[in-house]
Amino acid sequence: MKPLIICLQIGVLFIFSYIGTLIQHFFHLIIPGSIIGLLLLFLCLCLKVVPVQLIDQGAGFLLSILTLLFVPMTVGIMKYPFLLSWKGLLLFAAVLISTILTIGISGLSSQFFEKSAENRKEAQECNKRYTHSS
């Protein structure tokens, strides 16, 4: 019974992905159809148009085997033997440096915004207390 439910729910997810692709082609968008499908499903879930029970098992299953789904595409790197050369090393360096910068900068900015939001809250509370006592 459970495998059948999972298959049917994956079918539902397929439909959302397909509708997303249709929208993408119809409006000539560069956003991937599957992302449009994601947004549509999220909207439908929030508006209770689609009950969460209709997709939870299928979605959970797909996300649990997600990395397996990449394998056929990653095997495609066999078509790019240049990755083992100097150029491959440069590509590696570009991605690595950019990743380090991204983690550092976004970590710092998030920490900064979090702290300033907290400070603002504290300041407001102090003001409140001050006005109450006066």
Partner: peptide
């Protein structure tokens, strides 16, 4: 020839990300 069938599941897998987000 076989890999494309596994590939076909990637679309619904992206849509499935709406579930944890929800």
């Amino acid at each position: 020839e076989g890999g494309k069938w596994i590939n076909a599941l990637l679309g619904p897998a992206v849509v499935a990300l709406a579930f944890p987000l929800y």
